[in-house]
Nucleic acid binder design. Structure first.
Lengths: 247, 247
DNA sequence: GCGGCCGGTTGATCTAAATCAACGCCAGCC
DNA sequence: GGCTGGCGTTGATTTAGATCAACCGGCCGC
């Protein structure tokens, strides 16, 4: 299995417990909080949602009451248009916060679908606002996470607006690599949780184009792909693909 | 001049004054606040930034200390890549909040450029966080505005990822129309503040393609364009362009 | 008044990616 | 064990938009 935890990971019972002992501490909402503050946060996140592959965490139009933090597993979020066209707006892995799009209208504006068996913490939003009024560090961390989402989206807009297929795929792989690395997994060997079609939707490409881009990166000796298993052979050279592609 | 205020607008001295008397009340941060709460907000927004066309409100990399609310005028925000390619990430008109991308890293991640002579309120972010801890309605309104930004970006991602040129332009025009209308201006007659190239960058198209798309919409009798003056002759038919284009 | 430049339009040609199509592989299931 | 359907790859062809190029009109500065 190409994904190897490198950080010490707490055992499975601890994983089932609260923020205070959660290994995602440094990625998620509790970051930077004092012990007693984390314990207050614990009380907001008692509900867990366990999902099988393919199940929805929430749907477009459903009423908004809580944010979700990915505990383990993998999600995609997608928006759709009247005519059925859909666009994957993001992939979400452990420690990442989902559902912030719903605050503005009190209803979810996208579907969140588990791409493998997953678990998420449910964080009541009214209570989160209440607690963050009392805990400045939590308030600020929450604002940072919302802001990060905006920055991430701008990055995707740059990608969709001005990159060619190969650059898009390289950018996507490097982003995954960096996020896996931040979680203690290998930056170079990982298994994709999504289909070529989902990658294509996210990158604004058709699945055939994604497949060809994979093959081309492989022929250039930058990566090895076999289905969903990816090995990045040259992280630094892969970086140079972006914006050196052609023009 | 095709842009006619329809709402009552306060006179120019009032416009120069505080949130309490600002005509953008219902669009901006003060929305939903009680009178005394708005007055507290006033104290955070004493600084004004007046910019000539072309000047920058802030730049990529500059340190973050405040958000900005557009008072009058028009801005674009853009991100750029090492190789110089740039992407317009948004256009911002009065009542809209800018700079939220900078919270996550304490530094601005995009340039904000005035597209005409403009003015913005500077809102110290530390103080805004402090005040919003005391005023739940302000806290919630701020969260809504950040969330709206995320939703907006998802919409652009959908556009960039799955629409054809004509649909993209129609979507863009309808969005402007709706925002002008919300501010008491005509929904059908307005003057664009940006060049074809800037529109193109925002929509992921080259300027020639934007120009041709304008011409095609005009030939279909949906709009009238003369340079930057746009008249939407068939709002509802323009809406059907989106997602009915071909496929 | 004139020249130059910027922004915009339009035409001709090129090209990256979409589309159409065939095929291979594997997993799950009668 | 063989069948089926989903997923992925690859090839041939088409096409939307990019690129290259010419031209127009208005504005600014000299």
């Amino acid at each position: 299995m190409p994904q190897r935890p490198v950080l010490k990971l707490v055992d499975i019972t601890a994983l089932k417990a609260t923020c205070s002992v959660c290994s995602l501490h440094e990625l998620c909402l509790p970051m930077g909080l004092a012990m007693d503050e984390v314990e207050a946060l614990d009380r907001l996140t008692e509900r867990r949602r366990i999902l099988k592959k393919g199940e929805k965490l929430y749907s477009i139009g459903s009423s908004f009451g809580a944010l979700f933090a990915v505990r383990y597993g993998f999600f995609k979020t997608q928006v759709l248009q009247e005519d059925g066209r859909e666009q994957v707006t993001g992939f979400h892995m452990m420690g990442e916060l989902m559902g912030m799009d719903a605050i503005s209208s009190d209803a979810h504006t996208c579907d969140a679908v588990a791409l493998e068996d997953s678990e998420a913490c449910e964080i009541d939003f009214t209570q989160l606002e209440r607690l963050s009024r009392a805990v400045p560090a939590l308030q600020h961390q929450f604002h940072k996470l919302m802001s990060r989402e905006i920055v991430r989206d701008h990055g995707v807009m740059l990608l969709l607006g001005s990159m060619r297929a190969e650059e898009r795929l390289a950018t996507f792989l490097l982003n995954l690599s960096q996020r896996f690395a931040a979680r203690g997994y290998s930056a170079t060997d990982f298994v994709l949780r999504m289909t070529r079609e989902e990658i294509g939707s996210y990158l604004g490409l058709k699945l055939e184009t994604v497949s060809r881009a994979f093959s081309r990166l492989q022929n250039q000796g930058l990566i090895t792909v076999q289905g969903r298993e990816v090995k990045i052979s040259h992280l630094s050279r892969l970086r140079t693909v972006i914006s050196h592609c052609t023009s």
